[in-house]
Computed example of a mutant assay.
Amino acid sequence: MSVPAPAAPVSAPAPTGSKGSRRTGEGPLSRRNITETLLTGYVPLALTTLVVFLPLMWMVLSSFKGPGEIVTTDLDVLPDSLDFSNYQDAMTLVPFGRFFVNSVIVTLAGASIKVVLAILTAYALVFIRFPFKRVIFVAILVALMVPPQVAILPNYILVTSLGGADTYWGMILPGLGTAFGTFLLRQHFLTLPGSILESAEIDGAGHWSRLWRIVVPISVPTIATVGLVTIVTEWNEYIWPLVIVSRPEMMTLPVGLTLLRNSESDPASWGIMMAGAVLVLVPILVVFAALQRYIVAGLTQGSVTG
């Protein structure tokens, strides 16, 4: 009987921590990985932050400076003192309080109606069967590519013929449709589990009940994202209120800055203009800070279709 030959000894693996076990450029902490992380991550992030932050910082600092500190050949970054006279002048030269009230009315009314219309439209495009649904959705996508400035002249002729000049509804009406909000909500509604809605339908719930009791409560992050984008857009709207409004008592804050610039004849009074810009910017920054945590969640939920 033949005896089987003994198995060849298996060599032990080289220690992972020994020198020469890894090639140059490998490993989580290698020089190559650190360089790629800096060049593709931190450096672009730092440059983008500087591009966005530096003008805002300059605007805030200039709002505390006098004319001699702004219009000068010397680069003075920090003001000599925190002088709030520019803010006082900005609020007394023009009716800033009235501008603020007008902006709040137009923003809240316009944004609320826009969000509700976007919810209803997106729900219909996803959960209701009707003819030419795909054609309507393609038309909404086309509307995303058309700049709103194209419709200024037709909207002006229509609104003025209806008597909407220098009115709140004249400023709100032409922008009630939001293609972006409808598209984002539709993409999110497509990810909702159909079993929940089918169960509610079996229990006798109609479309209205399913929308407000099921779809809306589980879509709060996406709806908040649409609401935030809509609020920012309405608050910063400049061209259409400038075209449709001529009376100062009906102007919004962005248009009021133009009136402030025209009323202040001194070309060196940039500090007052910077103070007015800060007053316009602060309220929307507060709203953005309060709702910004919904942005990433809302955009992520609406980016995947089921």
Rank of each mutant, 00 (worst) to 15 (best):
G68H: 12
I34S: 08
E36C: 05
T73S: 15
L39H: 02
D83L: 03
M59W: 05
F64W: 00
L39K: 06
V60K: 07
G66K: 10
R32L: 07
S63W: 09
P55N: 02
L50F: 08
S30M: 00
P79L: 01
P44E: 02
L56P: 07
D83P: 07
S63E: 04
L82S: 01
T49N: 02
G68S: 13
P79K: 06
S62W: 05
T73Q: 14
W58K: 08
A46L: 10
L75F: 14
L50G: 11
S62H: 01
D80Y: 10
G66L: 10
T48E: 06
G27V: 00
T37I: 08
L50C: 09
G41R: 09
M57I: 10
K65M: 14
V51H: 01
Y87M: 03
L45W: 00
E69M: 10
L29Q: 04
G68D: 13
L38A: 10
P55A: 06
P79D: 08
D80G: 14
E69I: 07
Y87C: 00
P55H: 02
M57F: 15
R32Y: 04
D76R: 15
F64T: 07
G27F: 00
V71S: 14
L54V: 14
I70R: 10
P55M: 02
G41V: 00
